[in-house]
Amino acid sequence: MKLLTHNLLSSKSLKNVKVGYPLRIVAKDVKISEKEFNMEFVTKMIPKLDWKVLVEAAIQIGHGNGLPEQLVDDYEEDEDLLKKIHHILMEVEVINGELICPETERIFPISSGIPNLLLNEDEVS
């Protein structure tokens, strides 16, 4: 699971959960693999992301170095920053661990890189 995908995950389908976002990550195994840097992709992807959630997630899995809490306005010109964002979005993957619902503490396991968001019958709203 890449953090790009994590940025989209929510536990809102759980009963009594209002927002269910973002899910907290507890990572047991993290894999780093080098990917070609596509500046255009990173620049254009940033507006589609929840920046704060991305930074929090990066810190939770121990890769938050160099990511500003607030996104600067002229990030498009800051190639170093874009490379860091590329790294955290494209090169870092959570292989094993847990996702935790912020409101109910319900745990969703991540194994072999696949988060399992399935719910039991009695959990569905």
Partner: peptide, 20 residues
């Protein structure tokens, strides 16, 4: 990326969170 889930029930709703 692979997600184990029921259709799109795992996805944050476009309105429920603000995006920068």
């Amino acid at each position: 990326d692979v997600v184990c889930g029921d259709l799109l029930s795992w996805m944050r709703h476009p309105k429920s969170t603000c995006v920068n």
